[in-house]
Design a protein around this nucleic acid. Sequence first.
DNA 1: CATGAATGAGGCTTCATTCAT
DNA 2: GATGAATGAAGCCTCATTCAT
Lengths: 197, 197, 197, 197
Amino acid sequence: MARRLTERGTQRKKELLDVASRMFATDGYHTTSVTAIVDRLGVGKGVFYWYFDSKDALMRQVLLDAQQGLRQAQREAIAGEHDPVRRIEQGIRASIEWLSDHRHLFALLEFARTEERFAPIVRAGEEQAVADALPHVAAGVTAGLLRREDPTVLAIAVLGVSAHLARSLVLERGANADRVADAAIAFCRSGFLAPKG
Amino acid sequence: MARRLTERGTQRKKELLDVASRMFATDGYHTTSVTAIVDRLGVGKGVFYWYFDSKDALMRQVLLDAQQGLRQAQREAIAGEHDPVRRIEQGIRASIEWLSDHRHLFALLEFARTEERFAPIVRAGEEQAVADALPHVAAGVTAGLLRREDPTVLAIAVLGVSAHLARSLVLERGANADRVADAAIAFCRSGFLAPKG
Amino acid sequence: MARRLTERGTQRKKELLDVASRMFATDGYHTTSVTAIVDRLGVGKGVFYWYFDSKDALMRQVLLDAQQGLRQAQREAIAGEHDPVRRIEQGIRASIEWLSDHRHLFALLEFARTEERFAPIVRAGEEQAVADALPHVAAGVTAGLLRREDPTVLAIAVLGVSAHLARSLVLERGANADRVADAAIAFCRSGFLAPKG
Amino acid sequence: MARRLTERGTQRKKELLDVASRMFATDGYHTTSVTAIVDRLGVGKGVFYWYFDSKDALMRQVLLDAQQGLRQAQREAIAGEHDPVRRIEQGIRASIEWLSDHRHLFALLEFARTEERFAPIVRAGEEQAVADALPHVAAGVTAGLLRREDPTVLAIAVLGVSAHLARSLVLERGANADRVADAAIAFCRSGFLAPKG
DNA sequence: CATGAATGAGGCTTCATTCAT
DNA sequence: GATGAATGAAGCCTCATTCAT
């Protein structure tokens, strides 16, 4: 734990995180053994435990890194934007693109939520995501741009639509991320009802 | 397999399905051993293998039953309704209520999607759900009631909002299912934009 | 844990305790693997864990059984005797004989004292042994038969001489247990000084 | 092996022996890893294997040093004394004091006896101790000062009483070493019987 | 139908030791 | 002399599954 790593060591650790997370996503966390991971890398089993305290610990690291990556992408997406509605829309687009680009991490996050020991991490990340979106939503409501509704509910709904469409359309049906983002944004803006008049 | 079961046998099998699914949901599928299941029921291990070919087989049965249950609830909800929009709304409400009432099955479905061997079942179920909703959505679009958009996309978005709000608000934050259904319906109808002047 | 065992099961458990304790004594606790134990018995590894929660738990059971056995031997030895001095002497003889007959358990007790996790058991057993001897020693002092000295100290010294001579002379040098008992009793009675006058 | 050590090297080696022996005594030989030892000293693993061929080799060194230390203490204790009985008594006192002062080494010696690979060292040391005491005991018997009994038996009994009282009273119950030495000497002199007449 | 017992592959982890730098 | 990194055998334990009764 908390070793001082040389350059080579840092590299190894990254390799492990990457290989492991991909295998976890493909074959399942429980189904992927530590042996399988180190074999894939062509190293001895000790290497794994030199860099991580346990298989669990590695998984947690993967989850935290993933959440950080997604959050970073969202932040960058709204960096130069000041209109609340457009901020939200850029956030949706950035999220869907990130999920499309890191689909193995997406899968892992979904799995993690189903295991008592990892669930808290995922939930914390989602609360964070809601908290990140909240100010923009609230600002939109205050400015009369968004529907008068509990901003938390709106934020959660937006996240739900994004994640679900990303998975269903992009990951499972191979749709284009950009176009799915368009659809998600449209749905979030206006729902399914035909515009009046 | 396909045994002729006595009355008592049918009862036993149900007990097994119920106890196992709850334990799977709480502790995880891999983390719950067959031993733990039969111990909880106070029976020997032979009982388990008398009614099921394997742990996997039981899990599959649980998933299928769950999907059937949800579908049945949706069907009943729209039984007397002919307006396509209202049908969709009733479906949303019924889904959220069912997920709230059977949260352990909800959790299991989410987990199942993350394991190669169960994922096909879940995906099939979701395709079915989309297929079930599709006619109503298409009818709505045709009738000019719904926004001109790929009906499949609309259907998926609706399902995503329902499931996500159910989990986030009802399961994780303990909100009232009925009120969450209201919010979900509102969001699906109009999105987050404020109605135009 | 706490299983209901059939006759056959009880037998198996005894076999495991016996084989394991002998292997522990000969090769050391840490050096004897669970695999080695079950291999010796020609059974699968699961058998071990059917009867014991862990290797530690088995060891503890062995220690407790050993202590009980020694104590039982001592009790029987003094059963019909009322003179305090003779009681002590019979106790010494019984102990040395038991240690000679169960030398593998003797060795295990000595080892157990050197491991933090087993030491409490051994210490408790020794306190019990001192407590068992104390009334007789105290009675002897009161009756003026024994030297006026803290009875606890006397009891401990007696136990020390018995155990040490048993190990040094009987186990390591192959002396006859009975004759060693004679010597131990003589030493405990009179020490090493030549009788005066 | 047999390296020419610089001054600093000699120091390092001593540190290793000291730290390791204390950790072995506290946590057990098997339970204390080489990693734990070098970590405690804040050095790399290479250091360990620079000074010792193996963990076993270090342990053997510790045992030999301990035996030498105890023997040296005994020798110094009887240096100026010519009366055989008093020599023995001083030896008892010196032993108990040394064991009290180096209780971690005492514990290690006891453990070492329980492992086939270290047992020969311990046994050799004890034979040496008996051999050291023998001339004095024999002289005492010849001079009519000690009871007519096999001198080896007497010597072993004396060692047994000393070691056992040291452990039981000093180490485990925290008694004062000097007073325990008094009691040990008294017991060895006269046993437990009340003086006649 | 049901139970206690058994199997044995395989999982995670530790650790003495060695090596490249 | 010393370090971080790597090795890989071996250890303890779990668990889905099967079998004898």
